[in-house]
Design a binder for these strands. Structure first.
Length: 894
RNA sequence: GGGCGGUUAGCUCAAUGGUGGAGCACUUCGUUUACACCGAAGGGGAUGGGGGUUCGAAUCCCUCACCGCCCACCA
């Protein structure tokens, strides 16, 4: 057994207060020195595994990471203690666009661009950056105390991981799921790459709807079209109307002149046109609008390109000279001016509409005609839909299943190519000689068809999410059949943010079903979003984000973790950040610390021994009951992912039951020879168990206190509390009797305190108390507890009266069938007493009225269950009895 | 445009259809040797509005308002 030393020895100079910083750095260092986080595969145990959503290497820890990291760590630590074979796979994502942006920005400061360096040198620069800064966020995670398997850090550009990506790509390619598509896609003119639909953020923009007249050729009049992007009209090839539209039927097949140019456009009919919207005439610009592209395809129209990749107007025959090379938004103004002058601008309406922005740099997306690699989704989505519909993959809260299903059921093909340099280069090579094109897992030396060595690899890289999609199995070594895959796959849970359900979760599900023939995880936990104190979205760029590291500095990691746990994942998922909640849990840490100090002081030289049930006092039996009830509730709550319930159970037990009541009673019992020994045993059992019960939530403080507690032989051999078994309730200690008896004692004590305060009995004076207890059984219980009641309620003499009469000038309170009487004698303030009695009378009268209302209401007696009726009736009787007493007392004062 | 979530004490949140709770803040008292980052007591609420179901609604149904989020190819 280790020697027991007061933990305050480690926190000198601070009376009583818990110092989280010191304890946290001490144990972080210890944990890493002992390598407690290294993976240890235990055969023949059930598994619990989970992959950390890999943060971007450019990232820094924000509230979402901290919250999600905590929730996962709570489960991981819990399951580890419950004897599961546990894996928590950590790692980072190379984050294509983000990382390329960061390094480009850095180069820009040095006056260079990536083109100056060339592809190879640039990628080298990014790697350099990655080695220098890429693990920042993981270091920040350490402050939170997360128990990743740190020896298994993965990165989406690790050698093995890259093999997985190429295996996946080539397989999909050979099976025909990946194809080259020529069409209009989302394009960021700043990042100079295409984007998938999910990487486009729709923001509400206050813009304009321009109504422009296209004159008819060879006759007077014209058609008026509506557009939000007049500059794109230069690429128009037709005006479309709905074939059913009576207003325009007659124009179909005629010709209009495109303003600002000499071009003539046909008027065509297409049911895509909405008769209700705008003028009912739609200009068709196939190269610069995804829908127009479709219309153009249907009608075999050309697709002239007028805007280039950087969002500037092209210098070609479609664009009037004055706009050549001009930015798209400047051109918009120019086109509008020109139209005004030619009196072809019919109207400008204010118009609020959703405009796509680049998720990374917030530039307005330009629909852009290009060749991209697409993944055909329909067939791949089907089994993934089934997996969720059939409950093999379960979302928690379950409502998020519909977010997923809605997306998957309306799935569109996925553009997986990006025109970037940082990422996984698309493993497709084309023979320069015979133009044969194919995908290869490793670079081919020669063309398999003609043998030529002149092969060119596709310049594009894969969408970052293509590699993330493989995360749960690629990190475990797939496509190799590793032991880790065998032991830990499919994983148990995935805990993540709701905003990436489609972007990431959906894609892991379909890739896993495709390549592993099984689901990637059983439960998908969707955690809440922490908002600013006034309910806004936290955003680094807006400067309203709260840094979790600051909060850890200020309140301690455990306090932060406790708050995250108490937030839970079930209820409201928009959680406002409130610093006073952290304050609360910091105080809780302090409370626990001081309780620990007390317990440790009592256990000096103590050797753990079993509890002897027949020697327990009421208070002992009561706290053991409460303790085991708490354990039961906590286990149930965790099992259902009710983190908030578990946190509340632990908080309330610790503060309200253990500290406020049991420790106070223990002080009395410890001073008496007959009860001292069992009290120490109970204190030890409960407090030691409480440390283990809390450890998943608050690893630092529990590790510190537990390390100082006397422990049984088995436990002293453990490197850390994290390997100790998680406590479960022992039903033998459930004791409703103790619960009832103790709650009676507590009620009486509260009543004495209340009466003293109400009548201003000075705290220093020990007022005598008379108890008239109506029930003989209750009286017996209370008589046994006389010493405790006297001490805790600070009573002088405590006597039991056989009738309810009381000395004149007494203050009193009714508790169930009993009366708590405090004779005040000379202490009494007649006016004050009368005032208080009147107040109390009013309160009781209000209750009487309420109760009568229930009883008198229509069919209550007829239809409510009899036991309910009876209980309300007895309540009424009780209240009326109280009223009588109050009246009697008032009379006595006259 | 579609969908989801929320609206309870001054603030942040709890409450199997049965007389609405906690923490913070506020008021009063208190340094009793684990803790003043504490203890004790207290004040404070037509549960967003309006309908409906029910003996009984914060809770179930309808509707409106406001807040937040996701999805969406209506120019």
């Amino acid at each position: 057994m280790s020697t027991t030393k007061s933990p305050s020895a480690t926190v000198e100079g601070q009376k009583g207060a818990y110092n989280p910083k010191e304890v946290e750095s001490k144990w972080t260092q210890y944990w890493f020195e002992r390598e407690v986080f290294d993976l240890d595969i235990i055969p023949d145990k059930p598994r619990f595994s989970c992959a950390l959503p890999p943060p971007n290497i450019t990232g820094s820890l924000h509230m979402g990471h901290a919250l999600n990291g905590t929730l996962q760590d709570v489960l991981i630590r819990l399951k580890r203690m419950q004897g599961y074979n546990v894996l928590w796979q950590p790692g980072t994502d190379h984050a294509g666009i983000s990382t390329q942006m960061v390094v480009e920005r850095k180069l820009k400061k040095e006056g260079k661009s990536r083109r100056d360096l060339g592809r190879e040198a640039f990628v080298e620069q990014v790697w350099k950056w990655r080695h220098e800064y890429g693990n920042t966020i993981l270091e920040q995670y350490k402050r939170l105390g997360v128990s990743f398997n740190w020896d298994r850090l993965a990165f989406t550009m690790d050698e093995g991981y890259v093999k997985a990506i190429y295996r996946a790509f080539v397989t999909l390619y050979k099976e025909g799921f990946i194809y080259r598509g020529h069409r209009v896609t989302n394009w960021c003119p700043r990042c100079l790459t295409s984007l998938s639909d999910l990487e486009v953020e729709h923001q509400e923009v206050h813009g304009h709807l321009y109504l422009i007249k296209y004159p008819l050729v060879g006759e007077s009049g014209g058609l008026t079209v509506a557009t939000t992007r007049p500059e794109s009209m230069l690429g128009d090839v037709a005006v479309a109307v709905n074939p059913e539209d009576e207003r325009y039927k007659k124009f179909i097949g005629r010709t209009v002149k495109l303003p600002l140019t000499e071009r003539e456009l046909p008027v065509i009919a297409d049911s895509y046109v909405d008769v209700e919207f705008g003028t009912g005439c739609l200009k068709i610009t196939p190269a610069h609008d995804a829908n127009d592209w479709e219309v153009g395809q249907r009608h075999n129209l050309p697709a002239p390109v007028v805007i280039d990749a950087e969002g500037k107007m092209l210098a070609n025959e479609y664009v009037p000279k004055q706009f050549h090379g001009k930015d798209r938004f400047i051109t918009r103004q120019g086109v509008v001016e020109e139209l005004k002058q030619q009196e072809l601008l019919v109207e400008i309406q204010d118009y609020v509409h959703g405009v796509g922005h680049c998720e990374r740099c917030h530039t307005v997306i330009e629909p852009y005609l290009s060749d991209q690699w697409y993944l055909s989704m329909k067939e791949l989505a089907e089994p993934a839909i089934k997996a969720v519909e059939e409950g093999r993959v379960v979302f928690i809260p379950e409502r998020y299943a519909s977010t997923y299903l809605d997306w998957m059921q309306n799935i569109r093909d996925w553009n997986i190519s990006r025109q970037l340099w940082w990422g996984h280069r698309i493993p497709v090579w084309t023979c320069e000689e015979c133009k044969h094109r194919d995908a290869f897992e490793t670079a081919p030396e020669q063309c398999p068809q003609c043998g030529s060595k002149k092969l060119e690899q596709d310049p594009d890289v894969l969408d970052t999410w293509f590699s993330s999609a493989l995360w749960p199995f690629a990190t475990l070594g797939w496509p190799q059949e590793t032991n880790e895959l065998k032991v830990f796959y499919p994983t148990t849970i995935l805990s993540t943010a709701r905003e990436i359900i489609n972007l990431w979760v959906a894609r892991m599900i379909f890739t896993s079903l495709k390549f592993l023939k099984t689901i990637p995880f059983k439960h998908v936990l969707i955690h809440p979003v922490i908002q600013t104190p006034d309910g806004k979205r936290m955003s680094k760029s807006k400067g309203n984000a709260i840094d979790p590291l600051d909060m850890i500095d200020r309140y301690g990691a455990d306090a932060n973790r406790f708050w995250f746990t108490s937030v839970g994942i079930k209820g409201d998922q928009d959680v406002r950040f409130r610093e006073d909640r952290l304050e609360e849990y910091k105080r809780f840490s302090n409370k626990l610390w001081n309780a620990g100090k007390f317990v440790l002081a009592q256990l000096e030289g103590y050797t753990p021994k079993g509890i002897e049930a027949d020697k327990l006092t009421l208070a002992d039996r009561w706290i053991l009951h409460r303790y085991n009830v708490m354990l039961r509730n906590v286990n149930v709550a965790f099992n259902n992912y009710d983190f908030d319930d578990a946190a509340r159970e632990i908080y309330d037990f610790t503060w309200d039951y253990f500290c406020d009541w049991y420790i106070e009673i223990a002080k009395i019992q410890l001073a008496q020879e007959g009860t001292a020994e069992q009290t120490r045993r109970v204190l030890h059992v409960v407090f030691e168990g409480l440390m283990r019960a809390m450890h998943p939530i608050t690893p630092f403080i529990t590790e510190e206190l537990w390390s100082k507690l006397p422990k049984s032989e088995l436990f002293t051999q453990l490197d850390s509390i994290m390997f100790a078994p998680y406590p479960r309730e022992d039903e033998r200690f459930f004791c409703e009797e103790a619960e009832n008896e103790m709650s009676l004692v507590m009620k009486i004590i509260r009543s004495i305190r209340n009466t003293r305060q109400t009548f201003n009995v000075p705290a220093g004076s020990e007022a005598d108390v008379i108890l008239h207890i109506g029930d003989a059984g209750e009286k017996a219980i209370l008589e046994k507890m006389t010493d405790y009641i006297k001490r805790i309620a600070r009573a002088g003499q405590l006597t039991f009266a056989s009738d309810s009469s009381m000395p004149p000038r007494s203050a009193w309170e009714q508790v169930a069938s009993s009366k708590v009487i405090v004779p005040l004698g000379a202490l009494i303030d007649v006016e004050k007493t009368r005032e208080k009695l009147q107040q109390r009378k009013q309160a009781v009268e209000k209750d009487v009225q309420k109760t009568k209302q229930i009883l008198d209401s229509a069919d209550f007696r007829k239809k409510a269950p009899p036991e309910k009726v009876q209980s309300i009736e007895s309540q009424l009787a009780e209240l009326e009895k109280q009223l009588n007493s109050i009246d009697a007392q008032l009379k006595m004062l006259e």
